[in-house]
Design a binder for these strands. Sequence first.
DNA 1: GATGAATGAGCGTTCATTCAT
DNA 2: AATGAATGAACGCTCATTCAT
Lengths: 227, 227, 227, 227
Amino acid sequence: MADISFRVNSKLFVRDPQHTDLGQRIIKHSIDLIDKLGFEDFTFRKLADQIESAEASVYRYFENKHRLLHYLTAWYWNWLNYRIDIATNSLSDGSLRLKAAIKVITDPKIEDPRFEFVNEVALHRIVVAEMEKTYLTKWVDNDNEEGLFWGFNSLCHKLSGFINIVSPGYSFANSLASTVLLATHQQLFFLIHLPGLSDMKKKDDLSVQHQQLQTFIEEMVFRTIGC
Amino acid sequence: MADISFRVNSKLFVRDPQHTDLGQRIIKHSIDLIDKLGFEDFTFRKLADQIESAEASVYRYFENKHRLLHYLTAWYWNWLNYRIDIATNSLSDGSLRLKAAIKVITDPKIEDPRFEFVNEVALHRIVVAEMEKTYLTKWVDNDNEEGLFWGFNSLCHKLSGFINIVSPGYSFANSLASTVLLATHQQLFFLIHLPGLSDMKKKDDLSVQHQQLQTFIEEMVFRTIGC
Amino acid sequence: MADISFRVNSKLFVRDPQHTDLGQRIIKHSIDLIDKLGFEDFTFRKLADQIESAEASVYRYFENKHRLLHYLTAWYWNWLNYRIDIATNSLSDGSLRLKAAIKVITDPKIEDPRFEFVNEVALHRIVVAEMEKTYLTKWVDNDNEEGLFWGFNSLCHKLSGFINIVSPGYSFANSLASTVLLATHQQLFFLIHLPGLSDMKKKDDLSVQHQQLQTFIEEMVFRTIGC
Amino acid sequence: MADISFRVNSKLFVRDPQHTDLGQRIIKHSIDLIDKLGFEDFTFRKLADQIESAEASVYRYFENKHRLLHYLTAWYWNWLNYRIDIATNSLSDGSLRLKAAIKVITDPKIEDPRFEFVNEVALHRIVVAEMEKTYLTKWVDNDNEEGLFWGFNSLCHKLSGFINIVSPGYSFANSLASTVLLATHQQLFFLIHLPGLSDMKKKDDLSVQHQQLQTFIEEMVFRTIGC
DNA sequence: GATGAATGAGCGTTCATTCAT
DNA sequence: AATGAATGAACGCTCATTCAT
């Protein structure tokens, strides 16, 4: 198996967690804990207890829990980006590429064996439930200057690039792309917690829900850009 | 001037703030303070200092600061709802009504003299910056059961109702409506803080930005539902 | 017994501790604890444990432990000031007044029954051991602007006033006064901990030591100003 | 240029910093950092960052930051001692020697080219601002037993020796000497931070201030011992 | 000898909340 | 109804220090 890892913006961490045992345990257990407790109730104290290490040790890797959330979501966007690359690089037709990208984004997430210490299913739940908290803060402008949103930006631009290949004259490719990325995740949240705000049905099984989500998003994109 | 006030879900407060002087000062100053400090740094202590009252007094009106945010956003959604009613009730054509509703949603917000102790401009900024925090919590299911999201739900259904009149066969009217409501506010956030995720231009003046936003949203809706 | 209390600068505390039971216990036990542990090892946590109250409650009275030390030392200087007033107000001769003031400053300290919740003997030890820490900080300029040193200043100026009455032409009355106040306390510290820096003898009993101290200070003052 | 260095008490350090490159950088940068941040905010972490070395490396030279402060102040007292030797060894008259010693103590400090990695001007500021912290600790008795105050003691005794030559019958030579050494530095602190406690004028230029300081100290000493 | 990694301990502070008046 | 006082709980963070290499 190829030993791949994403190069995430080095501002996201103090010491790169991918390269040490403790770092990898921090990643692994923080995903589990945030998934279990929610980001508000997640603390470095609890994480340190979980991995049987010291709070101060966690601070050697991440400045604070916000940066850790940034790191995890950035990792997730990078992962989607990478999977879109794989899914699209053999396709030459613009429409098919866009369609394939949307499929990657809306498909149910399953564990990716290429990344041992990341539970992608749990991470996906975290992104659905907490992602907005990376930017709805008073530090957003500073964080953006430091490039912490590079992962999301990059994914967004990939998508808007695909859009503009299919429909060169469309003026709102970035807005549409960011709306699509957010809406995809938000609808999954609504489906579970605020079902009145979506049309997918809670009682359906996972694959049906995602099928509907895909249809909704695909229609929205292709019709909006005029195909 | 008509003395109107919205009937908000009584679960949102302990004691109705609209009916007492202290209650009204709580509303007024909490809008100012949250706008100024952000929701995270806003506390009942600071609010009490501001209105020269006691922390415990604020607790007489709102169970906690989350419920207060709920109250403010619910008020905002009610206000939009009410303004859509006014803007659409003379229109008989479905398309025109949908268009008018979108216009209300995307238009720049100005002070509404009908509501003395609410600064709608600041409240709009709060909704843009903090609204997601009403539901991205561990209490979301319980809050939903208590009907705290009634305001947003209701607005969403009004919009999806308009959509289904124009396009009865469209299957995702709720999802589209919620996406539109969120996207409208999120794009305004991106415009200011993460400009790479939108196509509106920071340097343009407010009315141009909102014009572009309106075009983006309107196109997305009408094309998606097939008109 | 007259119910007297010193009006200390209100910037020294958040809520005046003299007026509540908890406040008085804070004063009483902080004196005991600082005397016992030293200022560095003294914390609000330990104080709260001691008085069987909560850390947060102490913060209602004092912003931090530094301000508390300020308060205690200010109280001490006010107390000396007040005792000098009593000791001198019946004297008309300048030399005698100055001599009496020096006697108050250099005399051994005994419990003053007028102030129930202050252990003056322990407080005197604290002043000897910790007083310099009120001004050897990065906040000294700000603290001085806020008037936190008013107590010491005031005592110093009383003394320099006495000096200038005896010797109107002497140019360094303030410097001599502050030197005398500090030296008196420092020599007591040296006597115990760094005996090589003083000429009083550790083995002598307390009253002999203080007698020598008084002679040293009195000679220094009267000869320096030329009498 | 003569390659001189002071023999400081070996208890002050773990490994002598004068003999290695890293050791010299520790001295140099700790003076800069303590001068800049104050002793409280100075940490071995920050020092290690500054010299681009590791915290653990600093611990190879100094047991802790207190010992480092001891080392620096001891160096300073040794330096004064040495300069007094130079200034007095050609003088045979007791009064002139005492006067010369006082001049060395009260003169403005300028860089001494004989000691490359010590910035004497900054070190003087540190002594003025932090010196008392070497003995106002719970370890003072133990530190004294270990001889950590040898430098100050020694300087003090040199001065009291001079005093007793001029005035053999004076009983408080040590007390007067220690008072003089402390007062000289304290008055400089007061001049800047608590001007009400001194008679030197902030607005005057440095040499005038030091001239006044010298007059104050000289008068105090010579009149006290009766000349 | 020098360093990178890790950690135990605890500090200062704040918050949301309750209780008695 | 409104408020002043008090508090339990925990958070974020840093420091001094040690250990293994």
